[in-house]
Amino acid sequence: MSVAVLRFPGSLDHESAQRAVESVGGIATSVWHADAELPAGVGAVVVPGGFSYGDHLRPGAVASRAPIMGAVRRHVDRGGLVLGICNGFQVLCEAGLLPGALRPNATLTFVCRQASVEVADDGSPWTAPLGVGARLSIPIKNNQGAWFGHPEIDRVALRYVGDDRLGSVTAAAGVLDESGRVLGLMPHPEEACDPLLGSTDGQSLFGVAAAA
């Protein structure tokens, strides 16, 4: 099975995501947003980071209405896995595939730094190999990474450790859908898959994607 990495106008991190998949021995396939179907044999979909449609209206709002998102929805309904990173997380929230929404950072600044996050929910194929309490060092780089939702009912998968709060409700860094098959996170695991970048903690998630 291959990992489909979506690409929208304004996507930036699709190539990094493809490299991350390949770094764990997986096969990555680039998929254009205007396609109505995913290629055959896709086990997991990655919605990458960037600034799709220039973040106009709301980040992810326009991309979430793209033709490919209907195929992503059907993929989820069939039991497929989806990983949304940064703008991809915003796209999945806007598409209604993940709970909540991403708001401007409390600092009103672009935040770019290495973050420490902790697994809060391991009842998902994405986080099961890590286990609750596992800590990952993964960079964040975003303008609108403050998650707003209802953590008493929504599933928070990852939380920031320390002072990395962007203004997220309960310091959430990543959330799951009800099924646990869709994960969205603001940190960039694809930028933590090479020792040269100081951390390979992101490889676990891509290992899950590649094995799906």
Binding site: R103, P104, N105, A106, T107, L108, A146, F148, G167
Partner: peptide, 14 residues
């Protein structure tokens, strides 16, 4: 408008 209860850092900054 941002809903009541939703963080509005722009409003706070202004």
């Amino acid at each position: 408008m941002p809903k009541a209860g939703v963080l509005d850092p722009q409003g706070q900054t202004v």
